[in-house]
Simulated scan of single mutants.
Amino acid sequence: MDKATLNVALLIDADNASASTIDPVLTVLAELGTVNVRRVYGNWSKPALKGWRDMSIRHGIEPQQQFDLTKGKNATDMKMTIDAMDLLARGRVEGFGIMSSDSDFMPLAMRIRQDGIPVYGFGTSRTPEGFRQACTRFIDVGALGGGGPDAAAAPEEEPLTFEDTLPRAIGARPPAGRPKKKQVGEDVLKLLIDAYDSVKRDARGYASLSAIGQLAGNRSSFDTRNYGYQHLSDLIEDVPNFQIENRDGGVFVKRLR
């Protein structure tokens, strides 16, 4: 089946997601298919949710009203989880996006993935590690040009435009003035090295980059966009531990040290 025809559901926790990030989030979810189900959950009597009220009209997102029935209890999370399980049970959704920085959605992401359905999480840099790892991919909205508090605290980064989130043409130079690349930490480097060591290599020691990326994705919610890169090949090029070779059959990588 053509990936573009796959049915994707985006569920948004309005209390824990910034409306200014919705454009790049929808672009990222295009990797999975067409976002036909779009719902945002919250108590719309709250002035703080005005941004989501405006975006729901602009992007055809269905608002889901949930009153705050008891102080300190979030009924919105419960409603969002119930709807996700209903969509899962119907068997018509082939990919999920969850916009929230709330760790309460960790069990939901794990349950959806048990049915072999990918879950993309979108949250801030303060999102708990449990929810990050429960997702197939977790993307820091600050790296997408989001307007949340984390993005405001990063003066070196400028907001991305919608066009910036689209894949670059082969050989095209990145636009000037875009976010600076974040340093690739030892944990990510170890993940890439372990993936390289685990895949099949040719006589010259080169391994398929797609095979490395697939294995790394199976072991972690790691996503190159969290480091300011559109593609894994872009990130690998900036890591001194690897050497890239472009072939007719794709991109191949060799570990140097």
Rank of each mutant, 00 (worst) to 15 (best):
D2Y: 08
I12Y: 03
D13H: 09
I22T: 04
P24M: 05
P24R: 01
A30Q: 14
E31F: 04
E31C: 08
R38Q: 11
V40W: 01
V40P: 00
P47M: 08
K50G: 06
K50C: 04
W52T: 03
M55L: 11
Q64G: 02
D68W: 06
T70R: 12
T76K: 03
D77K: 08
M78F: 14
A89F: 13
V93S: 01
S101D: 04
S103I: 04
M106T: 15
A109Y: 02
I112N: 02
Q114W: 08
D115K: 14
G116M: 13
Y120G: 02
F122D: 01
S125C: 08
R126Q: 09
R132M: 14
A134V: 09
T136G: 08
I139P: 02
A143G: 14
G146V: 05
P155Y: 12
F162I: 10
F162Y: 10
L166K: 15
A172H: 08
P174L: 07
R178W: 11
Q183I: 15
G185K: 15
E186R: 11
L191K: 00
A203K: 15
S208G: 13
S210V: 15
I212K: 00
A216R: 01
S221A: 15
R225K: 15
D234T: 00
D238S: 07
P240G: 05
Q243C: 05
I244N: 00
E245S: 12
E245I: 15
G249D: 13
G250W: 11
